[in-house]
């Protein structure tokens, strides 16, 4: 069974077609990468999957729930993290996590916060204000927020953007472990090709609002005759055809 099903999805802003009739499915427990340059339509697609944005056309189902009619049932079972959306910076890390524990109706919120603090090495940060943290620490806190409800579907928008290689690797390792343990489905938008190669079993390549290619990283490398996904990305971005 698929965790995410998208069919005929489009989004138009006045004269601009941001997403143009895309369709894809993500199997339960899979990690799928959404790749594309700036303005390709990745963030718009994720916003529609989250119900933040109403599509112009098409259908989205998450965990069997139609997002047009029943989005709150799906939202309770999914979560989202993006470095471009902040947490209230005057509140402590623990207070922030507690808020989302309530919003997601998490049982034993305090226990869950302790669990996440141990797993993501946040113990010493719990009483510090979110606004006083470094970029790496903020990313770990955002990740903890996105996992507070043990989501079955996790949408990540550039989860390791602006992180140093060490912290980025820690986050990626943690995501791999979490998916293996929980069976969570992950849809990941990223500009980091090495990250996508490492984490994703399938990749959707977007350009000008359309999915222009798809497949596993290995399939894409073979199809384009390249050694890494970055070269594939450039081929697609610069309209060079697959081999």
């Amino acid at each position: 069974m698929n965790a995410i099903e998208v069919a005929g999805l489009s989004k138009r802003y006045d004269a601009t077609l941001a997403v143009d009739d895309i369709g894809f499915a993500v199997a339960r427990g899979a990690t799928v990468g959404l790749l594309g340059g700036n303005g390709a339509g990745k963030t718009t697609t994720i916003a529609m999957l989250l119900g933040l944005l109403i599509p112009t056309a098409g259908r989205i189902a998450v965990l069997g729930h139609d997002m047009a009619r029943d989005r709150f049932a799906a939202l309770a079972r999914m979560n989202f993290s993006s470095p471009y959306i902040a947490l209230p910076h005057r509140l402590s890390v623990a207070e922030n996590l507690r808020i989302y524990g309530h919003l997601y109706n998490v049982r034993d919120t305090e226990g869950r916060i302790r669990e996440l603090a141990a797993e993501l090495d946040l113990g010493e940060l719990l009483d510090r204000r979110a606004g006083d943290l470094s970029a790496g620490q903020k990313t770990r806190v955002a990740l903890a927020k996105s996992l507070i409800n043990r989501p079955e579907v996790l949408l990540l928008d550039e989860p390791t953007a602006s992180l140093d290689p060490d912290t980025g690797d820690l986050v990626r390792t943690w995501l791999e472990r979490y998916r293996a343990q929980s069976g969570c489905t992950i849809l990941l938008a990223s500009h980091n090709m090495a990250e996508v190669e490492r984490l994703c079993g399938q990749v959707l390549m977007m350009k000008r609002g359309r999915i222009v290619d798809r497949g596993s990283p290995a399939e894409l490398l073979t199809r384009y005759g390249r050694d890494d996904l970055e070269a594939v990305f450039l081929d697609i971005a610069r309209d060079r055809r697959a081999a």
Partner: peptide, 18 residues
């Protein structure tokens, strides 16, 4: 407005909060 000033609206509206 506090939610807007803290750029937190995105997180709030992707939660199951009606």
């Amino acid at each position: 407005l506090e939610e807007i000033w803290s750029r937190n609206l995105g997180h709030v509206f992707v939660s199951p909060l009606r």
